[in-house]
Simulated assay, not measured.
Amino acid sequence: MGGESVGTETEEQPHGATVVVDGFGLKGPRGWVFRQVSFRAEPGALVAVEGPSGSGRTCLLLALTGRMKAEEGHAEVGGLPLPRKMAAVRRISALGQVPGVNELDPAFTVAEHLRERALLQRRYDGSVRALLRRPAERAAAARARIDEAVKAAGLDLDALPKGERTSVRDLERLEALRLSIALALMGRPRLLAVDDTDLKLSDADRAEAWALLRSLAAAGTTVLAVCSEAPEDALRITTLSGETGETTPRASGTQAPATTEATTTETAAAKTAAPEPGAGARPAADTTTGATDADRAAVGETAADDTTDATTEEGAADALAETGRA
């Protein structure tokens, strides 16, 4: 990105968030997890973070969604600077699947996941006027939001073995991915982040997964996806494992080329920062199963909470460390 300064965003920008990263780096107890990451993605861009397991891909995704605190460089998401506005970035971004952070509960059914997320959205993200609606109106609004998200994620509920009553443990890998994305889309985020996009997918399912993410980006949402191999048409950010490394990923369209330099150990980011306060292995803002009181308090955070201190508890980061992932 050279000498380009971190940009700002105005109200005239599309729904998706501009992501501007300049010399971004995160350091853990064992050294740098990633370093010197620089790129710019316009609203509605599809950004693919590729690289081997343990090369800092997941931690970069969490840092750019305000769930881990970077120590070096600058970044802005939707005009909000990181790490100073981490809580605000969390409010305009959403996580799809991130193993060890917000995994689907295998005992829950698809309907239970969807209803719970709709309840959380209504309780903490709705206007006062919406909360005062009649129960029937609130139920209809929740159903409409569910239907909108399910349709956008391409999840065919009728095709599932038991329809909405299908347990997560009985879902195919691609179906589970679609469900996690549907849950994230219920918050109508400006930035959607998905980990392990192509993990354990057949070639046909991988093509479907990328087609889904392209459709979401085309609709205006900026998409950040971690993968082992990026498609040719995405803005490609490549992380490297080892002492140091540099690469110049290929970019398409009007997206600018990006460079990353990454050093990592698999548990380097374990105690750097935690995605959400008091949420254990599931950050409250992205929970997909039963919400605790701490979860609810975190989801309802206000602008006054918009400080980096709000993310220094270790819950979800410890869970990420336990998976041996970065």
Rank of each mutant, 00 (worst) to 15 (best):
S5P: 10
G7A: 13
G7T: 11
E11A: 14
E12H: 06
G16I: 09
G16K: 00
V19W: 04
V21C: 10
K27A: 14
G28E: 10
F34W: 01
R35M: 04
Q36C: 08
V37D: 01
V37N: 01
V37S: 02
F39P: 03
A41W: 01
L46G: 05
A48C: 04
V49L: 13
G54N: 01
G56P: 05
C59V: 14
L60W: 03
L62C: 05
A63H: 01
R67C: 12
K69I: 15
E71C: 10
E71D: 13
H74P: 04
A75Q: 01
V77W: 01
R84S: 13
R84N: 09
M86Q: 09
M86E: 09
A88F: 04
V89W: 01
G100A: 03
E103A: 12
E103M: 13
D105E: 13
A107W: 13
F108Q: 02
T109E: 06
V110G: 02
E112I: 04
H113Y: 00
E116R: 11
E116T: 09
E116D: 10
R117Y: 07
R117H: 07
A118R: 00
L120P: 01
L120H: 03
Q121I: 11
Q121D: 08
R122E: 12
R123Q: 15
D125K: 09
S127A: 14
V128M: 11
R129H: 05
A130E: 15
L131K: 09
E137Q: 12
E137G: 08
R138Y: 05
A139L: 12
D147C: 08
E148R: 10
E148M: 08
A149C: 04
A149N: 00
V150T: 00
K151M: 11
K151I: 09
A152G: 05
A152I: 07
A153F: 00
G154C: 02
L160G: 00
K162N: 11
K162P: 03
R165S: 10
S167I: 09
V168E: 00
R169E: 11
D170H: 12
E172R: 14
L174A: 06
A176I: 04
L177I: 09
L177C: 06
R178E: 00
L179C: 00
A184F: 05
M186F: 06
R188P: 01
R190C: 06
L191C: 04
L191F: 04
D196E: 15
D196T: 13
D198V: 09
D203P: 10
D203I: 12
D203H: 12
A204T: 11
R206E: 07
W210A: 02
L213I: 04
L213K: 00
L216Y: 00
A217L: 07
G220M: 08
T222I: 11
T222E: 05
C227H: 02
E229A: 15
S241F: 10
G242P: 03
E243N: 07
T244R: 15
T244K: 14
E246D: 14
T247R: 12
P249K: 02
Q255N: 11
A258L: 06
T259R: 15
T259L: 15
E261R: 15
E261T: 15
T264M: 06
E266Q: 08
A270D: 15
A270N: 07
A279R: 07
G280F: 13
D286A: 13
A291T: 01
A294Q: 07
A298I: 04
E314H: 09
A319V: 05
L320A: 11
A321E: 09
A321L: 10
T323R: 14
A326E: 07
